[in-house]
Amino acid sequence: MNIQGENKTQNRILSLLPLWIVIGIFMIGPLLVMAVVSLMESNVYGGVHFKFSLSGYRQILFDTNLFDEIEFNPAYLIIIARSFMLALAATFLSLLIGFPAAYFISRQSDRVKNILIFLVTIPFWTNLLIRTFAWIIILGKGGVIESSFNFFGLLDEESSLNLMYTNSAILIGLVYSYLPLMVLPIYASMEKMDLRLLEAATDLYSNRIELIRKIILPLSMPGIIGGSILVFVPCLGAFIAPDLLGGGKKLLLGSLIQFQFSYARNWPFGAAMAMFLLALVILVLIFNARLNRKHREYANQK
């Protein structure tokens, strides 16, 4: 609709100007400054020395030893690999836990469905730090799990199960943090699904396993992909779970970056790591956009 004789362009620009200014200056601006800093030399006092250098990026793979020789240092590569593996594992686990739940919720009456979905979203709106902290009470030394083991005599007072500060603890924390983000898009794509398709497939001699494999999985694929991206991306840059449950022993990309700014004070290296994480995320998003486009083309063909 375009009403005769009214200048829309001017209105649009005026309405969007605050957005452009705020996001432009305080979101894009910082990212650009960070990109610049990642290309500077670090300063021994924890600041930035304004001289072009690739040392921030080089440090991801190489280290300078006592004799000023450059040698390969796999420490950070290991952290990157661990981040990747844990993010992948968390995504897969979330899918495993979330998929049946999403399906079950989508098959309820409208009233029940709305309430259950609301219950899924509540954790998302509550403080992630606090929710992760709750797991310290459960997994920690003398926490809920260990004291119940004590109670049943499975564990004596002095010894510990050493559940905290492990990759598994971080993994539990990650799944717990982002599980709702997996369920919501899968639920959205399942809710639209026509139940008669399942009846038709059964009528054509499918059993329940085949129903899931041949009908439900393919039809909820957009939701599964969407949910996986929503879980994978924040897991890759997670800070709270590795910091609280990994206790700084098991660094991930997110906690490594935070460490560079809070303690190590090597800004160019921290900025370079942040740029690296950003690049990874952009790659994932491009991959996702490709998948989506393929899916849409496929849907359009039909």
Partner: peptide, 14 residues
């Protein structure tokens, strides 16, 4: 889209 930790350190540097 941008990971929160990246936004956080970028804003700090800025």
């Amino acid at each position: 889209m941008v990971p929160e930790i990246v936004t956080a350190v970028a804003t700090l540097i800025f």
